[in-house]
Design a protein around this nucleic acid. Sequence first.
RNA 1: GGCCCCGUGGUCAAGCGGUUAAGACAUCGCCCUUUCACGGCGGAGACAUGGGUUCGAUUCCCGUCGGGGUCACCA
Length: 550
Amino acid sequence: MDYKDLANAIFPNTKEIEYYKEKYPKRDLPEGAIVTRFAPSPTGFVHIGGLYQATIARKLAEQTKGVFFLRIEDTDQKREVENGIVGIIEALKDFNVIPDEGMTDEEHEIGEYGPYKQSLRKEIYHSFAKDLIEKGMAYPCFCKQEQLDEMREKQEAAKIRTGYYGVWAKCRHIPVNEAIERIKAGEEYILRLKSPGNPEKKIKHKDLIKGNIDIPENDQDIVIIKSDGLPTYHFAHAVDDYLMGTTHVIRGDEWISSVPLHLQLFQVLGVKAPKYAHIAPIMKEEDGAKRKLSKRKDPEAAVSYYAEVGIPHEAVSEYLLNIANSNFEQWRKQNPEADISEFEVQINKMSVSGALFDMVKLQDISKRVISRYTAEQVYEETMKWASKYDLELKEMLEKDTKFSLKVLGIERGNVKPRRDIAKWSDVKDNIIYMYDEKYFGKKQNYEFQKINDKEEIKEIIQKYIDKYYNENDDKETWFEKIKDLANEYGYAREVKEYKQSPDNYKGHVGDISTLIRICLTSRSNTPDMYEIMKVLGKESVIKRLNEAIK
RNA sequence: GGCCCCGUGGUCAAGCGGUUAAGACAUCGCCCUUUCACGGCGGAGACAUGGGUUCGAUUCCCGUCGGGGUCACCA
């Protein structure tokens, strides 16, 4: 009895690994092409850090005319979530991260290197596991969970390294014929790697982001096939990324400590390992301590959050690129109109330590992005958002599209566009006072400023309506008239005049226009008042002014 | 605890033995301006710490401190 018999006892009918090696030939790609992937578990939830990795991976593949694929890592059935795959695909799509290969919905996929869902690749893993057993590099382990726990306790008590290795790896030394017998007798088992590593020695690993790191070799006999027949992450990673021709593995740096194991796996499999780029996580500060953005505690950890509050996906992508390569900012300054697909990501410029997530900065970027939009784009995007999250806003906007477009177009499209919308959820509060149906019928709270004497207000506004306001005036005339009005009531026509000799005046033209602004909108801060009056139209303007002095 | 990574203003970050230590966001002041937003100008604000190496260290080495990651039949 030898390893071959053992292998056959465990996997009586699997294909030879040669079969798979031929089925998935080396990819025919130009020199230097990067093949990479995003490989999430199908929980439906995409973490901002995951999107970050996927964004980088997507761009790297694109830049080198390589391939970016989506692989679903569903080897842990406990974590399965219904429609988890679609959730991920949709989330990626929202941010314009489109895989070249991989799952396209819960069942379908594109690409020649599939299946792209690990649970469908069981036989493949079995073939490779069998090959390892034949070579004496893997073995069945019959240890029960309790035995493992007990072992750990002993190790902890003795203050030595925990785990299944060396003398602790009891099943490693079970004779082949005994193992076969126990398997035939129906005893439960899993498969472990017979690690050839020596922790006294260190491997030198050159990470694309972190640079040189020396880590002790792995000597843990980790499990490669679980009792449900599915592989562990580590084994699946090695087999899949070999077969799928992955050249670069881009993943979170929590994986860095398993690099020795992974390298060893590729080594025992006798295949070339990919290059690794370990990305620092996106962190959050809480109570003075840094920690990873948490799925449970931080709503902003989920990419869906940004859609919910209405931050445009370009803004999120820009922010992510900004964290990835700090020269992005400079590039954006030089190419304000360019599409972000034109920006080239350099992996070696990525930060080695985790950045704190900065919502303020994101919103600043978002304001910039939105300020470049036309009124039509703002309308369209806001409508998209509102129809999901704010029906009142949707109704308000679509009731009179032309009017809404005019409202959204105020101080937009010029050289210095307004920069006051960071997210679609800001829009409503920004413009609601422009809508008569929302404005009237509600008690307005006029917070008068310098001019707050009721009688004086009444007089001034009435005078403005009767004598000065004309909806056909051009901006210059319109403002001249406000100056005249100011003058008539003892307010300086020019602010400068007033500042030179404040004793001669009750105030200046600014006080008058502020008064009109408040009476018109019930707000003291608004965009350009001339434009507002134009958009509102005569009827509404007069009605509003009258309402204020009622 | 073992192993690994990291440590430049509040935040993100340039820097790679000699710099007045960039820039962006935030903050403050001034200017522009009928308010706000925009824009312009300016201010404050940093190399965690102790030892080396060196003519010279933010840059290189070691220790300390601090932060993070990882030690599963989860990924």
